[in-house]
């Protein structure tokens, strides 16, 4: 956990807040980004984060109460580094009342659904609308269909996902936290889509 906190000096001088908010940040090589995960309960939000940050998968993970925080830095091809500050929120409907606390000011929102659950897909669409209304105007949104390894139980088609994503100007990907499929790709794609401070 404390991997990054053990070396707090390293990040000294980095930008405060997310780059999307700061616009012309001189530190083009090191981007910091606030990312929030939203979606129905049990779709695997925490699992995606754990897979991405620690490379682990725990089929019996704990219920997230409130929200939990993790951060991870990745390096891109062009030698820029992107530090994701990930807020993993609780999935139950009523916790939506607290979600604005976490998605406010977020540069990236990852809306997750479970490809085996149409309900969770509907919930994802709710979140998209919610973000369009209350999120930052230039928020980057990704629609993620998780549990892609359970394709024999699939109930939400890829086409539906793509359509929904296109309609809302989102990036779409299907992942599996269990098999680690597309997890890193998801975050790399997001990183690529981030506005570069120098170009703005």
């Amino acid at each position: 956990m404390g991997c990054s906190s053990s070396l707090p000096d390293r990040s000294s001088g980095r930008l405060v807040g997310t780059n999307s908010e700061n616009g012309g940040a001189p530190d083009a090589k090191n981007i910091r980004v606030k990312l929030v995960l939203l979606g129905d309960s049990g779709v695997g939000k925490s699992c995606i984060v754990l897979r991405f940050v620690r490379g682990q998968f725990d089929p019996t993970s704990k219920v997230t109460v409130g929200a939990s925080f993790l951060s991870q830095t990745i390096a891109l091809q062009d030698s820029t580094t992107v530090k994701f500050e990930i807020w993993d929120t609780a999935g139950q409907e009523r916790y939506a009342a607290l979600a604005p606390l976490y998605y406010r000011g977020a540069a990236v929102a990852v809306v997750v659904y479970d490809i085996t659950s149409p309900d969770s897909f509907a919930k994802a669409q709710y979140w998209v609308k919610e973000l369009q209304k209350h999120g930052s105007p230039d928020i980057i949104m990704a629609l993620v269909g998780n549990k892609a390894d359970l394709h024999e139980k699939r109930e939400v088609s890829v086409q539906d996902g793509i359509e929904c994503a296109e309609k809302n100007g989102m990036f779409f990907i299907e992942t599996s936290a269990k098999t680690a499929d597309n997890i890193n790709q998801l975050f790399e794609e997001i990183a690529k889509r981030l506005p570069r401070p120098t170009t703005s």
Partner: peptide, 17 residues
Amino acid sequence: TTKDAGDAITLLQSLAG
């Protein structure tokens, strides 16, 4: 002493834990 939002939160989480 932290210089970064992420570090502050991670630090507090792990300290509390």
